[in-house]
Nucleic acid binder design. Sequence first.
RNA 1: GCAUCCGUAGCUCAACUGGAUAGAGCUUCUGACUUCGGAUCAGAAGGUUACAGGUUCAAAUCCUGUCGGAUGCACCA
Length: 587
Amino acid sequence: MIHLLIESRLRAALTLRLPDAAASAAALRPCPDPKFGDYQNTAMMSLAKERKMNPRQLATEVAAGLDLSPWCEPVEIAGPGFLNFRLKPDAVAAALRGPLAGEPLFFAKAAKPRSVVIDFSSPNVAKPMHIGHIRSTALGDCLARVMRLLGHRVVTDNHIGDWGTQFGLLTVGWKTDLDANALARDPLSEMERLYKQVNAASENDPSIRETARQELVKLQSGDPENLAIWKRMIDLSQAQFDRVYGRLRVSFDHTLGESFYNSRLKQVVQELRDRGIARESQGAICVFSDGTSPPKEDPFLVQRDEEWAPNPLLIQKADGAANYATTDLATLAYRWETWRPDEVIYVTDGRQQLHFRQLFAVWKRWQPERAEGMKLEHVWFGSILGDDGKPFKTRSGETVRLFEVLDEAEERAFQVVSEKNPELAEPDRREIAKRVGIGAVKYADLSPNRQSDYVFSWEKMLSLQGNTAPYLQYAHARIQSIFRKSGDARASGSELVALRHADELSLAKHLLRFGITLEAVAAEYRPNYLCLYLYELAGHFARFYESCPVLKAEAADRPGRLLLCEMTGRVLKQGLEVLGIEAPDQM
RNA sequence: GCAUCCGUAGCUCAACUGGAUAGAGCUUCUGACUUCGGAUCAGAAGGUUACAGGUUCAAAUCCUGUCGGAUGCACCA
């Protein structure tokens, strides 16, 4: 990749001038405006500032040691010390043909592959998956796909909620009020009904709470009947998860739920107590501040009445049961022992930020030597809102079920496809509608900045204009149509490619940025960069296609233009693929 | 009360985490074309980035304060 070649030469030139400069200082970014060039580096200004040097002079000196003549026009130094790089059209044309010779599609495999565990989706047993699960699922799956494409070793792990106090109430409901027909018809709804019913009843009747507690104790101590009920609930739930994941084309390497770690919990608590990290307080076992960080940054302190008060992390409740913090710690230990990852990523909503700050802090205190080489990252995201600006709910105030969202997405997509392309046979339109509908839902989760809340809107996500999945799929389908019409004559790669037209050149240059975009997605866990890139790619293509005839082009222009179509189609397809979205050939 | 996040065009969202003149789509208006899929393209209009200070070559982005909002803060996960 050209940007990597430039980076490596820039790094060498920089090291010659400033041996102590960080390697990352040579990183390039795309120029915000083509008039400045294609790539820029802005590090000379900050490096000069740190060293009280003249930034323009530093930039000039570094540029003097740079020979990029195979790929670039002479480096330009602009403003207070920007380095601007402009690609030579011949180099662009040569790079454009790389994938025909078997090179990766304008990206490079990571020089140092990392092994990464990604924890995402995590639905709860005995509860229907709802709209809140889609964002974690879409983001986590996309990050896994991007990192794999870049050559990293990825382990995906679905940490399902299959243990906890709710099973006491559920077991009571199962034993006293189970409707077998309803269970056969719609197991998740029936289990949900049982839970709500018993939970409501227990609020008025302490004896039900007590019964539930006893059922939970029996389950925890291995009572065969309760264990069987619990396993049945898991199986029924997993079947539903699998159907949803099937529709979403999401899969996991492992599904190790909370119960998997039960046997390890006692030891976690014991070790933390032995090392003085945790202690008893009000009957519970808690981790308190160790006072090593400033109060403002300490996740175990909270300010109350102008004083810093303890904000402990509970690892064992007063009744002796462990809770999710304990499970998360046991899980981290297991992941370290099993996969020795360089990195563990948690994809959850932003409300759990404090929990993860505390969790990561306890891990460092508990396993300092292991924590050294294992980066922990909480990749959090915002809420999905209704058009009233409040969390997205049904009209009656219930959470919106994921299955129903997917049904409606497919149905609405079917209407759109039928309207736009009525001559296609219905089964084909149904098949296309699945890809368009599911793709639209995922894209709606991936294209905004993950940290912002976004408003759920069928009209927006299924719109054929703007930054939507259907628009990108359409661009892809349009390109496939060119090849159908041309009798499938693809670019052979043997012809010289000129890129004489400005729209040809800017499209080609944008194609070459696919790799740098994927790198940014992986580095910052932000799929929206890729969405924006693909949207811009579709825009470049539309402009090119408007101004440059392809099939009707002069013989001299035709091969280059077919090549541009081919590569745009491939990048759109590959880009959508790592977003977890299919690109139909017709729509 | 404290913490985290947020406040950007009429609406929905960007802005590669301190970079160059804050960009898209929708909406409104104008234009292109005997459609290589018009599900298109070009142009116009729309902004004191909540407000007030500060830091610096450079601030939507960092710091301080004010106003407004979301979320979280001891035995749910």
